[in-house]
Design a binder for these strands. Sequence first.
RNA 1: GGGAAGAUGCCGGAGUGGUCAAUCGGAGCAGACUGUAAAUCUGCCGCCUUAGGGCUACGUAGGUUCAAAUCCUACUCUUCCCA
Length: 418
Amino acid sequence: MTSDFFSHMQKRGLIAQVNDAEALIEALRKPHDNKSEAFPGVYCGFDPTAKSLTLGHLVPLLGLRRAQDHGMRPIILFGGATGLIGDPTGRTDMRPMSTKEDITRYIENFSNLVRRYFRFDVPNTPIFVNNLDWIGPMSWLDFAREIGVHFTVAKLLSADVNKSRLEHGLTFMEMGYQLLQSYDFLELSRKHNCILQTGGNDQWSNLLGGTDLIRRVEHKQAFCFTQPLIVDSQGRKLGKTSGNAVWLDSSTTSPYDFYQYLRNLSDETVEQTFRQLTFVSLAEIRELCAPTANPNAAKERLAWEVTALVHGKEEADKAVAAAHALFGGGGDLSSAPRVQLGKGEVESGVDIVTLLAKVGISPSKGEARRLVQGNGLLINNEKCSDVGYKLRMQDFAQECGGMLIRKGKKDYTIVELV
RNA sequence: GGGAAGAUGCCGGAGUGGUCAAUCGGAGCAGACUGUAAAUCUGCCGCCUUAGGGCUACGUAGGUUCAAAUCCUACUCUUCCCA
């Protein structure tokens, strides 16, 4: 059944570039002993550059899960070592260096986030590794002699990713990044029978570095493919809202906001996102996204499916209920985003502008003022265009258990008194 | 090591003594239209403000001047050319 993996990924639009498709299909066809270490391994690395993972990381994560479902062993690598260096790919300047303590903390959070996407009740359970474990103890000299010797500087410089960086200052540290990632693949190939590496489309040259290294050192063929970056109809990277990333972590992006983000995707993006971010069958997706079908029904389903994967069915249902309540009128508001305000504030006659800034609905008073002046604010579904409006206790006595603030068309917040 | 150029707001990129909180484009926010979509059009887009103004900003630190993003000095960083 591993043999179906590749075509499954292709049909879902999850493969951008492959190094050797035919040989990979052939390798996956090879029967193996289900009880031993012999599951062919597939790995993808995640560098701890931020405290949480984003929507964009969901593609490779689910890709590993799809591999698991097809009888491969998923290997999730955390870049404890590579995170200290920073991948120069696609960047015009160096990443700010994180501290070692930050990276340790991030990795802890990553491993908590990631577990839910895999199965542990099967023989091919996932493996979690940290590349600091093998890169950390290695001396520079050993590394240079064992790994560095297989890379020429000309080759590294010819990579487009490095070329563009050359003008802006590429450091020695960062140029070593590809070597580290290549070494990871070699190590996993030796230890865990890992035959395949996946990554984002921008990772192509890093992935090839690994397959090259394995061929040179082990005289074995290894495989890699990249996955398309998920983008919207304008080709913008998916997963940013209001300039902020959409995180997989419920404490940074609430399940409601997560749901809303997907619910608001543009029409053209829905079918592709459906294939890439859900396990819904292709036949059903076709039906949902047919030209005659209701695009809003498709979006609701898509948003629910992905939210359920990331936050669980219960949270997804709550997000739907909240959305229906806010947009459809009536229904259950209990899951809408909430913020709290001290009673004393209202008693002392706080005005609307101060309140918006205080609870974080607007980042500053000036912006709150502009919002109100621009007719963009509704209090309990009534337009409020009076900048000096003073809140009263009865404003907070709505059914939802507080005051319903609507900013613009679809940004709802309940302010409750404590 | 020597020489040249450069560092501006979230990003790109104008500005070269006052009229600069800084042209323009992108991103973002809001309004109209709509389907919680796209496209389009309109307004906003440093912070505070009792709306008169105040404060902080043009790599960092000093200086010249009534007045500096703009001139001078030192420093930091980057790019290019030569070695």
